[in-house]
Design a protein around this nucleic acid. Structure first.
Lengths: 613, 613
DNA sequence: ATGTGGGCATCGCGCCGACAA
DNA sequence: TTGTCGGCGCGATGCCCACAT
């Protein structure tokens, strides 16, 4: 593995992935990707650059080299890729990277835990409070026979530097702490409250420690890192006498800043222009990508782009998008609605699919993200929104036409027919009647036909599972067709031959209810006792489900989608019941549902191999 | 004064000169200089670059812009110059910069003082011991009525940042100290013992503080600054476990280094190639020069280059060279002998005068410098060395031919006739007889005829001064002609109409004697008492001279030159006496001279205006 | 289970005079 | 005159528990 000309040496891949997060989908060497110069430029500055040469918006490339690197100053994980433009668009010869379907690429994914630093962790007394789960699963076994139980742990950071900490279990009540050595680590790494540290036990058994910097200041971009404000001169002893003119000082401070940023070589517009120039002329080039930066990936696996652009995109469509949570290494799914389909910058990047979807989110957490690219989201069928709530004059559609990727020339086939509003494709027109569209066009594999057939496509909240769990949930009132349309929305997806993913969706109409922004999670509390008690934690409240002859396993989180219709109607009491088991009412669980609310439960049932041993 | 594109803002010129040292001869804007790409490349790397395009070795330019700058990280003073190649070599039209003769350019040179940091200054207790002279001449007046006398002083560094120190006069015996604030300064500036700080009181009355970094590690070049070794990771808590492979660590360290150096933009071979390319094609270009770096100046005033190349240079010639002492802002003169006259790199830089003189030094202090350029040295007549100690087959001569500077084309006139050895010019052939060559060809102005006539050219140690001081010093043994040749060597130089510089030279044959490497300095102790007592400090021992009717003033330091002949003979006792005064013997002064030793005293006598008032 | 605050021991920075070179 | 050392006072660091969430 030859090291390229400049920069840091490659770093530990396991820790790199733990720091970059589960959503950093780096393509493998040899795979085909689509390079978006527009997204590359976004990484440098969110403002559009007016004096850019005309580049094609998307260029198909083959990945010839991927280096996993870490910023020597901030420890941030980033990647450097060398790309070779392909002569023919979507020439997927030799593209064997379809690693997005199952997670089989990493044979044994190392266990890791992330914690956001509190004020006490970062400031007070030099101690770090280790969450119990982290201490018990990742840190070395502690000998609890000692009084107090204490040990020295060694952790290797992403550069290979080893740090020593004292790990002690003390206090009333007992808790795990890092004491001696932690303060030094915080100072050296310049950690502040809000930064995230990642503990990981690698496959070699070695303890690793990584850092994810909090992105303080959304407006701040990479060219002006937040750490640039660190004073390099005197600290409290720096004086400014009266005779010292203000311009002198500002110039001195400015020089320090510019010097600091200048040394981040990859984040210059020049580097983007160089890469895009080489790409559009068919020459090999290198790009640098920071996965934790707010910028989106601008090198995307070709088949993902192609698949997403082969379908139609229209306002009103509902989708979900995976987002890394900051305080854990799990992934949350957020739901949203397409508002318009329109290019970001029709002048500089005409007919570009980059972030062509302007969206709103069911929750306010992702308010900073107003636009996404089609390949970032998964459609949730069917569409639900009444057309009246959409800005009618802005409606446009991305036709299901194959993306014409430019491999060398400068002509780009139009992805969008014109700049005037276009109405949706007939098969995805809005259903103002209350009937659901057929499953045609929904994302189904060949092995999930059973689940698809069993799904109840009615306007009731349906909880269906493979003919074993029958839908027995009342609908939340029946006051109107439009509001009822939102109820019972489900999606189904196969996770394998034996596993099926089932979803129950409840959309909340009251966005002011803070409890509704919590995640919905499922905890399998069962040990070996039978019947197993499976507990759904819904908005922070536990709801017990007692399946008699089924195993329930959590596959992923589901989030609450707030609907777009408001209702003044009375609160409804909803009771859920599963076959052979009773469930508390949502009202008793502290959930005050209103007309038009929708709830989404997602879990997976293992049909075969009950693991009853 | 427009600021150029990148880098720090211009800094205070007074402090810049104080930090750069007296030997940084920067040309003025509008003056003519000779640009040596070879020297420029040397600043980047001492190793020759084999794949360089062919450039002319010397290019005459006009200085269009000079910026005085300081490294924002290390505070090192450097200069950026913009040069415009001249169409005709040595077209000195408008060249009014002959500021090398008298020091008239700076009307009122601000007073400054430099001190090398001791261990106590840099490490212990956060205090700095201010030399009394510095405190009394440069620091603000201290009110000694207080108990203890204490004040707060503000000093501005080269970037304009102001630092606060507590200045106290205490201790037994009393001494000046900087206490509070000093430790912070040391830490922020990352000062270590051996670094030099410069105190200066500017013409505006403001106190300034500058830094000269010690060049630890002679082999270290600018690309690998000495400060690169600072650990960036953990300090004492950094552990390297056994399973950690050594290559990983070395790579990590290397990456830090390369990252550090990368951010010093001007020190790249690319910048040299760009400058030389522009220069040889007649286009304006910019260069950056660090005067305190070990690299020699590569932009030299044209008339200095021309003057030095108009004369012959041959092996065996004796010369002196000015060198800044590290612990004070004075200048020392070191003597040496030309060994060969040969290009540094005949392949890449044929017929280049750059560092064409291969030399040896009378003292070991300058051992790192093996080659110098002709314009760096002043010839000392006559030549003294026995030819047997010179490598005969390497003898070459630089003929007194005018330098043909290339102003645009690529043809360069030969500066050296051929690559085969050439024997010296007849007027500088070796005198194997013991007779001295005539003064013909020596550097004499029109106003120093008297001193030249009065000089005793015999093989005795002569201490002569304008017929008032007669040579009365015994020669150190008389065992042989060759060894005696080195004794009595003198040079004379006019410092003005009324002042004459007189030299007495004693060369030491034992280079292992540490005392002999000390400087020879002269301190005028006289206040208003008459007769005045002038004290020569010789190798750290004081020797008193009592001139009755003359004023003695120190002009410059002289250094001990060690001869090239060894002797086993007995130690000789030497007594010096001046007219009307007696002097201690050198033996009593602790100086153990051997046969072949030579001593060099240099002082100046003011003939007119005895200032007896 | 874990974040925050106060108590308090300890450490090291930094100011001091006493030497000595 | 000034470099270095040991003494020592004071303030910051950092370990601990109590309490709250």
């Amino acid at each position: 593995m030859a090291e390229t000309s400049s920069g840091s040496p490659p770093v530990d891949t396991e820790l790199w992935h733990a720091c970059a997060g589960a959503l950093a989908h780096l393509p493998q060497v040899g795979s085909s990707v689509v390079y978006f110069p527009q997204g590359h430029a976004e990484q440098v500055s969110p403002r559009p650059f007016l004096d850019l040469p005309p580049f094609p918006p998307a260029i198909a490339c083959k990945v010839t080299c991927v280096d996993f690197l870490a910023d020597p100053e901030t420890d941030e994980a980033y990647a450097r890729m060398r790309l070779q433009p392909l002569p023919h668009p979507f020439h997927d010869a030799g593209d064997n990277d379809h690693s997005d379907s199952p997670l089989l690429c990493h044979e044994s994914k190392p266990v890791s835990f992330a914690k956001t630093l509190t004020q006490s962790d970062a400031n007070n007394g030099g101690g770090f409070s280790i969450p119990r789960y982290c201490a018990e699963t990742i840190l070395p076994r502690l000998d609890y026979a000692q009084t107090p139980p204490v040990q020295t742990v060694l952790a290797r950071d992403i550069h290979g530097t080893v740090w020593k900490f004292r790990h002690i279990y003390r206090g009333t009540p007992r808790r795990h702490l890092l004491t001696t050595g932690w303060s030094n680590f915080v100072n050296q790494k310049k950690l502040v409250a809000g930064d995230v540290i990642v503990f990981m036990r690698g496959n070699s058994g070695e303890l690793c420690i990584g850092i994810r910097r909090s992105m303080r200041g959304v407006g701040h971009h990479r060219l002006v890192p937040s750490r640039c404000g660190i004073k390099v001169g005197a600290d409290q002893d720096l004086l400014i006498p009266d005779l010292c003119k203000a311009p002198d000082l500002s110039m001195a401070a400015g020089s320090n800043c510019s010097n600091f940023s200048r040394h981040r070589t990859p984040f210059t517009m020049q580097s983007v222009v160089e890469a895009a120039t080489a790409a559009s002329s068919g020459q090999s080039f290198e790009i640098v990508y920071y996965p934790r930066a707010s910028a989106a990936e601008f090198c995307v696996k070709s088949h993902l782009v192609r698949k997403s652009l082969q379908r139609s995109w229209a306002p009103g469509m509902r989708f979900k998008m995976a987002v890394d949570t900051d305080d854990a290494s799990r992934t949350s799914w957020y739901m949203g609605t397409i508002m318009t389909v329109e290019e970001v910058d029709p002048v500089c990047w005409p007919m570009s699919p980059w972030k062509i979807l302007q969206v709103t989110w069911d929750e306010g957490v992702l308010q900073g993200i107003e636009r996404v690219s089609p390949w970032q989201v998964d459609l949730v069928s069917p569409m639900l929104l009444p057309p009246l709530s959409l800005p009618r004059k802005k409606l446009r559609l991305l036709h299901p036409r194959e993306l014409q990727l430019d491999g060398g020339g400068h002509e780009v086939s139009p992805l969008i027919s014109s700049s005037t509003p276009v109405y949706p494709h007939p098969s995805y027109e809005f259903q103002v009647t209350g009937l659901y569209p057929s499953m045609e066009g929904a994302r189904h594999g060949s092995n999930d036909g059973l689940a698809a057939q069993d799904f109840a496509f009615n306007n009731q909240l349906g909880w269906v599972h493979n003919n074993l769990y029958q839908p027995q949930i009342q609908h939340l009132g029946a006051s109107g067709l439009a509001s009822s349309l939102g109820l019972g929305t489900s999606f189904v997806e196969a996770a394998g031959a034996d596993n099926q993913l089932i979803a129950l969706t409840v959309g909340s109409s009251s966005s002011s209810e803070p409890a509704l922004s919590s995640n919905l999670s499922c905890c399998d509390e069962g040990g070996s006792s039978s019947p197993k008690c499976t507990q759904f934690v819904l908005f922070g409240k536990a709801i017990d489900v007692q399946p008699t002859n089924e195993h329930l396993q959590l596959l992923s989180h589901a989030t609450v989608a707030d609907g777009l219709t408001m209702s003044d109607g009375p609160q409804s009491e909803v009771s859920l019941s599963a076959q052979g088991s009773s469930i508390e009412t949502l009202e008793n669980a502290g959930l005050h549902l209103q007309q038009g609310d929708s709830l989404c439960l997602t879990y997976m049932s293992a049909n075969a191999d009950p693991q009853s041993s």
